[in-house]
């Protein structure tokens, strides 16, 4: 089955896309309060040395996100 959406974890290095929504309300609460909103342009900068964490830029703000956190942010296709 083809997925209808993708998340931050699907972004390649230096690729960017707009966030559309969240699929976990607790994480959504935390991330929106940090300024990561639906509509925010998210750019993948790099992965952490031991994997499972991502260094991203959300509208120019540098954030470190865990795998689950990154996977809860749905992006435009």
């Amino acid at each position: 089955m083809q997925r209808r959406y993708r998340t931050i974890t699907d972004l390649k290095i230096n690729e960017s896309a707009r966030a559309i929504s969240f699929d976990d309300s607790e994480l959504a609460c935390k991330l929106t309060s940090m300024g990561l909103l639906p509509g925010t342009r998210i750019e993948m900068i790099r992965k952490s040395p031991f994997g499972s964490a991502y260094y991203v830029k959300a509208d120019g703000v540098r954030l470190a996100l865990r795998e689950e956190e990154a996977a809860s942010i749905l992006l435009e296709v």
Partner: peptide
């Protein structure tokens, strides 16, 4: 329990 990393990497 929900655990967060989500941390700002300051300038």
């Amino acid at each position: 329990e929900h655990s967060f990393l989500a941390i700002e990497l300051p300038v």
